[in-house]
C-alpha cells in the first residue's frame, strides 16, 4: 500500500525516545519509509529537545535539513523553563523555514501552554505568522486543547496546529470546539488512537481545510495514520486536502 498522492507530513521527529526501544530511526531509514509510503516531505522536531536539551536538539535538526534538502522541514523546539532561551533559539535557527515552524511540548516540559513563560514565544509567532505545533492531550492541565482557545484569539497571527488533536475522542471534540472558535487553529491527526469515523466527524464539523496529516514518525507508525485517511468514507478531494494541500498552504502563508 502506497499513498496515491505525495504526502506533506506536518508532524515528525528525529532522535530516540526513552520509554521504549526505537526501531529504524536514523534519517536514512526514515527516508526509505517515506519513499515506501509516498511521503514527500516531513516536518521534524528534535525528540531530544522535547525532553531535555533544546539547543543541541535544534542543532541536530539543522544537520538533517542540510543532509536531506527537500525531504525534511524543521521545527525550532523551544522550552519555556530556561527563561529567555526560547527567543534565543528562535533567532538562532530562523533559517529553518519562513514562516517559522515552532514546536511546543508542554507535557514533557511540564509547563502550561498558556503560562507566562511561553508568552515571548507566542508573541514571536504572532508577529512572524509562524506555524506552532503544540502537543495536546485530552483535558491535560498543561496541554489540553481547550487551553489553546484564548491563546489563538490573543495571537491571531500564529497558525496553531493541535498536535494529535487531543488523542482521545473527547480530546478531538475539545480540539474541534477550539478550531470552530478560531480560524487560525488546525487539527493534526497524528496519534496512537485510530478512532473509527473520526476523520469523517472532523470533516463534518470543520470542513476539509482545517485537518492536517501528521504521522509522528519515527515515534509512531506512519502507515497507521495513512490507513485511517485512505479508508475513510470521504471524497478523494478531501483526502488530497488532508494529505497534502492543507499543510502546503500554511507553509506558503506569510
Amino acid at each position: 500500500m502506497r499513498s496515491p498522492i505525495p504526502v506533506v507530513d506536518c508532524h515528525g521527529h528525529i532522535g530516540t525516545h526513552p520509554d521504549f526501544p526505537a526501531y529504524k530511526i536514523c534519517p536514512q531509514e526514515m527516508v526509505c519509509v517515506m519513499d515506501l509510503l509516498n511521503i514527500e516531505s516531513l516536518a521534524i522536531t528534535s525528540t531530544r529537545a522535547c525532553y531535555n536539551d533544546c539547543p543541541r536538539g535544534n542543532e541536530e535538526v539543522d544537520s538533517v535539513l542540510r543532509q536531506y534538502p527537500g525531504r525534511f522541514r524543521g521545527y525550532v523546539t523551544v522550552n519555556p523553563n530556561p527563561e529567555g532561551e526560547a527567543l534565543q533559539q528562535l533567532e538562532r535557527f530562523a533559517h529553518f523555514h519562513q514562516p517559522p515552524l515552532i514546536k511546543f511540548h508542554p507535557d514533557l516540559h511540564k509547563y502550561p501552554v498558556n503560562g507566562r513563560k511561553y508568552l515571548p514565544a507566542w508573541d514571536y509567532a504572532n508577529q512572524t505568522h509562524a506555524i506552532v505545533l503544540v502537543h495536546t492531550w485530552d483535558s491535560d492541565p498543561n496541554c489540553g486543547p481547550l487551553l489553546l482557545g484564548p491563546i489563538a484569539r490573543e495571537f491571531p497571527g500564529a497558525h496553531i496546529l493541535l498536535g494529535h488533536s487531543g488523542v482521545t475522542w473527547r480530546g478531538y471534540e475539545q480540539s474541534i470546539e477550539v478550531a470552530r472558535g478560531s480560524p487560525n487553529v488546525f487539527l493534526d491527526i497524528s496519534g496512537s488512537h485510530s478512532h473509527r469515523t473520526i476523520i469523517e466527524h472532523c470533516l463534518n464539523q470543520l470542513g476539509e481545510e482545517r485537518i492536517l496529516f501528521g504521522s509522528d514518525m519515527p515515534y509512531l507508525e506512519a502507515a497507521m495514520v495513512l490507513g485511517r485517511v485512505l479508508t475513510a468514507r470521504v471524497s478523494d478531494g478531501n483526502k488530497e486536502a488532508i494529505l497534502r494541500h492543507n499543510f502546503l498552504r500554511l507553509l506558503t502563508m506569510t
Binding site: M1, S194, M224, G227, R228, T231
Partner: peptide, 11 residues
C-alpha cells in the same frame, strides 16, 4: 478503524 492496523501490516 481496521484501516489503520491493515495498513501497518500491508506496509
Amino acid at each position: 478503524t481496521p484501516g489503520a492496523a491493515l495498513a501497518v501490516l500491508a506496509t
